[in-house]
């Protein structure tokens, strides 16, 4: 029988305490090889080879239009939904060949959650927003659903705020609360990877701070890939940083490395210029 979600990907071996053990070698979970994407004839980014470490927070930075968000959508094959979108190259998630037509995208997207720039809860109640995807993935046990509801909402720090109005519409929440609900919704499916597309940019500074703390707290338990325009934020939260830039009419990966290395000893002149705020 096909066991729906085999539990191998949740082995605790890659669980790492948030502060990281000294001398622990990060191992790549996602690797892209010469990944390119074009909308029709318009290339979005070209030939990006990037590796993303397990349990780390990787920030993608760079000016608008350099293909960061497009890159993100390749990792969970959301590109399938975009008309005229053409992807080439390879993406590996552990052993899985992500772009292969044989890959079950629904299972893939369960392993790779995504948070969008604009909070996008469903027009349902708060409870339904969390339970509906779980039920669709075959979890119907009432007790377990309630348990997950409680723990994920606690995880995102929303439980105290919404516990009395779980049945009220999610769209009535504030922007920051909606975004945290969306994170809870993604976390409830216990994904390995979380893709975040500027999750704070549509929020006010206060909510943005709350969400940022939340992201930091995910370190070690999840592999996070976050697109951000906020360099200070990238510096605060990221373990690794990758810089995208528009060159020759298309987005390209300029430099990647640990946050420390990129911010303190940038190798490429564009990186140096960008982090010093001269360009971009």
């Amino acid at each position: 029988m096909n066991q729906p979600m085999d539990s191998t990907h949740r082995l605790p071996s890659w669980l790492r305490p948030p502060d990281g053990l000294p001398g622990h070698q990060p191992s790549p979970l996602i690797q892209t090889e010469k990944l390119s994407l074009a909308y029709g004839t318009q290339p979005a980014f070209d030939s990006v080879s990037l590796s993303i470490n397990r349990g780390c927070i990787t920030a993608l930075v760079g000016p608008s239009g350099s293909g960061k968000t497009s890159f993100l959508t390749c990792l969970n094959r959301l590109t399938d939904l975009i008309p005229r979108c053409h992807v080439s190259g390879r993406v590996h998630l552990g052993e899985l060949d992500v772009l292969s037509p044989k890959t079950d995208v629904l299972q893939l997207r369960r392993r790779v959650g995504m948070i969008f720039q604009k909070p996008n809860p469903f027009p349902l109640s708060i409870r339904k927003n969390l339970e509906f995807p779980l039920r669709e993935h075959g979890m119907t046990d009432r007790e377990h659903l309630d348990h997950l509801l409680l723990t994920t909402l606690q995880d995102v720090g929303l439980w105290a705020e919404v516990k009395d109005r779980l049945e009220s519409p999610a769209l009535a929440l504030s922007g920051g609360q909606q975004q945290r609900l969306c994170m809870a919704r993604a976390l409830a499916l216990s994904p390995e990877v979380l893709l975040m597309d500027e999750p704070c940019s549509a929020l006010d500074p206060l909510s943005s701070g709350v969400v940022e703390d939340l992201i930091t707290s995910l370190r070690g338990r999840y592999t996070v890939v976050i697109v951000t325009h906020n360099l200070a934020q990238a510096r605060r939260i990221a373990d690794d940083v990758a810089l995208f830039w528009v060159q020759h009419g298309t987005g390209q990966l300029i430099e990647q490395g640990s946050s420390k290395q990129i911010f303190d000893h940038p190798q490429h002149e564009l990186t140096a210029a960008y982090i010093n705020g001269i360009r971009g």
């Binding site: 979600m5 993935h137 046990d141």
Partner: peptide
């Protein structure tokens, strides 16, 4: 974890 699949079609 209880993940059951009730529908006969995937």
């Amino acid at each position: 974890m209880i993940w059951s699949r009730s529908t006969f079609l995937s």
